[in-house]
Amino acid sequence: MKTGEIAQTTTRDDLAEEGPSFMKKVKSFFIEMALLSAFMWKFFKELFKRPFEFNEIARQCYIIGCRTLPLVGITGFIMGLVLTIQSRPTLAEFGAESWLPAMVAVSIIREIGPVITALICAGKVGSGIGAELASMKVTEQIDAMQVSGRRPFKYLAVTRMIATTLMVPLLVVFSDTISLLGSFFGCNLKGDISVHLFFSQVFEKLDFMDIMPAFIKTIFFGFGIGLIACYKGFNSDKGTEGVGRSANSAVVIGSLLVFLIDMIAVQLTSLFS
C-alpha cells in the first residue's frame, strides 16, 4: 500500500515537472527552427554578393571531396558486394538470378547509395565543419574576421555550404559507380558474367526516373548537411564543451535531415511518376 502511494506521488511529481519543461522544449524547438530559417535566408542573400571567395570554395571542395573519397569508395564497394551476395539466394529461389545485376543497381542508385553516402558525409564532413567553426567561434576568430571588415558568414559559411552542395552529389555518383563494381565482383563470386553483360543488364533496367530524382535529392542532402553544420558551428556555446556539442549535433541533426529529405523526395517522386 505504502509503496504504491510513493510510486503514485513520484509519478505525479514527474508529470508536474515534465509539463513546463516539455513546453519549454517545444518552444525552444520552434525558436531553433526560426533561427535556422533565418540562417538559410542569409545564405541565399549573401550568395550573390561580392566578394565571391572562389579560392575558398575551391579549397573547401577539395577538402570535402578528396578527404571523404576513400571512405565513400570503400563503403560503396562493400555495399554493392554485400547487397549482391545477400540478394542472390532470394532471387535464385524464384529462378530470377539473371535479374540480380538490375535489381542491385536499382536499389543502389535509387536509395541505398545516396542515403548511405549522405550519412557518411553527415558524419565526416558535418562533424568536421561543425567542430572547426565552433572552435573558431569560441576562440573569437569569427569575431576577429568581422572586426577586420571581411564577412565571416560569406567566407566561412557560404563557401562551405556551396562546397557540400556541390561535392555530396559527386561523391554519391562516385560511390554508386564503385558500388556497381562491387556488385559485379559479387556476381562473379558464384557464377560468371562478363563486364559487358553486367552493365548492359544494369542499364537496360535503369531509366531516367531512377537516376534523376536520386541525383536531385543528393543536392539537397549536401545543402542540408552544410547548412546544419555551419549553423551549429556559428551558434556554438562558449567553451570547449560547446565545440563538442556543436560537432555532435551537426552529425545527429544532419543525419536526421538526410532521412527527412529522403522521405519527402520519395513522396514527391511517386507523385510525379
Binding site: T139, E140, Q141, D143, V147, S148, G149
Partner: peptide, 20 residues
C-alpha cells in the same frame, strides 16, 4: 559599417589568430 570597421583596429585579449 564594414567600411568603417576597416578603419578601426581591434586587438583581441586572446589574440584570436586564425589557426588554420
Amino acid at each position: 559599417l564594414e567600411t568603417l570597421r576597416k578603419k578601426i583596429g581591434f586587438l583581441f585579449q586572446s589574440a584570436a589568430l586564425y589557426d588554420s
